[in-house]
Design a protein around this nucleic acid. Structure first.
Lengths: 141, 141
DNA sequence: CCTCGCTGTAAAAAATATAGTGACAGCATA
DNA sequence: TATGCTGTCACTATATTTTTTACAGCGAGG
């Protein structure tokens, strides 16, 4: 596969919505900003909508945030678009007749969980509010 | 691509080497335990060797650890086999003519780094010694 | 000195998650 | 009623890894 940029694109979409709130916002416009096509944008937006991060009405080009920016974390967005995908993956096809093959993968799961939790804890502490602030700082300079 | 299981397989190899130290260990044997082929095992072992995690001599089926198990961390192994691959990836093809496109990705890099650091810190605290202990516990039960 | 088994390595092939594309039914607005 | 947009699905293309295959070269043993 190629590297997933869904999280990056989702945040791009959210910021685009925030910045242009009030004006009509079509998936075509957003697609042009991300340099992809409208169908792709709508797919990501559908995932964000399912998680209650954004709101939208069929036929109306007026998407909006469903929560306050300070209540949306990077983890919320990640889980929405990547469906809780883990960073590390076990090899599930090892030889069950070998003592190492039997036990090693279940042993590792515990440690992989710890690593995932550490990353997710960090993601949970980063809000869209914070990202917006950093973004605005950049636009000034 | 499919999910990378290189880290899991690398640890599998290391434990196999530890458990069978003293006996001859061929890449064929290890490959059978992981259920892959010898070439694949040798490629991973080459990466581990480059990082000074294992030692081996051409033509001799006697690989061994190059360090003490308590000095090898999960991060060492990860960096060896995944070459410092990041968990999250920016979308580098956004539209530079759009205010969001210009700034959003560089804004995100900072946050992605934080998340990566949190995960790596956790990985650095997990040693092969610890994994071995957990593994032995499993084999008793 | 020759044979055998193994490692190290590179290049080609297969696998597969993911992005990207295209199409269309249905709602809202004017 | 016509137009523009969203939501959704199925299909295709793409990127990148894993896996496979092959072979040169070293070491050990007879």
């Amino acid at each position: 596969m190629k590297y997933s940029t869904k999280l990056s694109d989702a945040i791009h979409i959210l910021i685009y919505i925030i910045i242009n709130s009030g004006k009509p916002i079509t998936s075509d416009q957003i697609a042009e900003s991300i340099r992809t096509n409208p169908g792709c944008v709508r797919q990501i937006m559908t995932l964000l909508k399912k998680q209650g991060i954004i709101k939208s009405v069929v036929g109306q080009p007026r998407p909006s945030l469903a929560k306050n920016v300070s209540e949306i974390t990077l983890l919320d967005i990640y889980n929405a678009v990547e469906k809780d995908k883990a960073f590390l993956h076990l090899d599930m096809q090892t030889n069950r007749e070998c003592i190492v093959g039997i036990h090693i993968q279940s042993t590792l799961q515990n440690y992989y969980d710890k690593i995932q939790n550490a990353a997710e804890k960090e993601m949970q502490e980063i809000t869209l509010q914070e990202i917006m602030n950093s973004f605005y700082e950049k636009t000034v300079n």
